[in-house]
Structure formats: structure tokens, C-alpha cells
Amino acid sequence: MKTFVKTGVMALTLTTGVQVGADEAANLVINGETEIKVRTEAPEHLDNLSKIYSGWIFRSDETQALQMDDFDNPGMIFVDQGRDAWAVAEGSEGKACADCHNEPESLADARATYPKWNDEAEEVRTLAMQINGCRTEQMGAEAWKYDGSDMLNMEALLSSVGRGTPINVAIDGPAQSMWEQGRDLYYTRTGQLDLSCANCHEDNYGNYIRADHLSQGQINGFPVYRLKNAKLNGAHSRFKGCVRDTRAETYGVGSEEFIALELYVASRGNGLSVEGPSVRN
């Protein structure tokens, strides 16, 4: 049985049930060549954590193995579908992604820096918003549904070509106020269970909530192929699930609140590698 040895002060223990186990020492190398940083020093803006960990660390041997070879990773099915869509011309301009960006690999650095401020639009954009920006502004095509399968396939493609790149989300400058909004949300308790993100993912990562091994809630691995629903899941949909589980009315997928929260949570992972499409339970 593997155990996660948590350093620092242990806050209240939720419950210790059947332990699936996770290995703090495990390393992730994809296809025997792409090294993924699954643990590193916490970014300076984080006061309450000294180290940050990818959610991969907290999963069982079997689940971890699914991400070590692209053929075993069912999320790569959707990368293939994203690659097909990359070449399809759409909209009034008759353009495909490939017409401006050539190969998806030319955007290998994109996933690591989103969400980020867009000067022209004067807003913080998630990667999904930027993809839709391309679609509506450059291609004259219809926007894809936020966290819908077309969008997640494209995000999975852009993540897959950026795997190994350190997450590097800017939190200052024009993005700062939205980042602060996200930080406030992260520490705000919601729902009948009266839980904030931090209660589980900062105070109790490494502990068990029933049989579930709590991670730090990092989003460097999104989009995520979940064994639970056997498809790709977006970060906002995951936020929604978490907030719902506190028995609260949730914010909407693509809402300003979740954009702010995504910016903040992404920045908590600055220094971990882009990992998507990852595999989780």
C-alpha cells in the first residue's frame, strides 16, 4: 500500500476509509520521453503551501499507468478528433485553424499561459475563450459550446502538444483584479456543507474524504479523461461538480466567476507541467 507523506501541519482529518494509495515519490514520464513535473516548489504567491503536486500523484498505480503511454490514455482519442477538426475549414472566411497556425505544435506554448489578459478584447481569456475568439473573429464560424466535446477536443490537442511545458500564468498587470476575485472565491465557503475549495484542496490534500484521495485540485492536467464518465472534462465543469457537492447553487460553466477561479487555480500550479489530457478517477 502506497502512502502520501504530507509535510507541514496536518489540519483536521476528514475520514480515513479504504485507502487507494498514492506515491509521493512517483515520477511521470510519458511515452518514455516527455518528462512531466508532478511536484515542485509552490509559487511565491501561495502562502499556505510549500510544495505543489499534480493530481496524478494522488491516483492509484493503475490510474497513473494509463497516462504513461499515449496508447493507453483514452484521452488521446479526443486529441485525434481535435487534430481532425484542426484542418477543417469553417465559417464565412473559409478558414481552418491550420490556415493561420500551420501545425498545432506551433501553439505548444499556449496552454501553459492561459487564462491570460487579451489586450484587444480587454478581458481575461481562458483557452476556450481564445479558441472561440479565433472561431468567431477570424473564421466567421460559430462559437463552440463551453466545455462541449468540440471545444474539449481542441483544448486536449493544444494541451497534448504542450505537455512538459511549465505552467506560467501571469497574475499581475491587467489580470490582477480578476485573479484577486478568483482567490476570494477559492477561500469562500459555500453550500450546506460550508466548504471552500481550500478546506479540501489546501488543508486536507493527501487525506481521504470517504474513499476518495484528496488532491490539491491542480488543473495543469485539464482537460481530464475521467474514469467515472469515460470522457473529457473541462475545468469549469469540474469546478461546478465540486461546488455542487458542497450542496450549493453553482456558478455557470464559462461564467465570470469560474473564469476568475480558473485564473487563480491555474496560477496555484505555476511550475507544474502541462499534462493534459490527463487521466483521473
Binding site: 476509509g17 470517504r210 474513499a211 484528496l214 455542487r244
Partner: peptide, 10 residues
């Protein structure tokens, strides 16, 4: 094979 149940019932 023991099958586990998720944390918050989600």
C-alpha cells in the same frame, strides 16, 4: 475487486 465511492457523493 473493491470498488470505491467518490468523496462528496459526486
Amino acid at each position: 475487486v473493491k470498488v470505491t465511492i467518490g468523496g462528496c457523493g459526486g
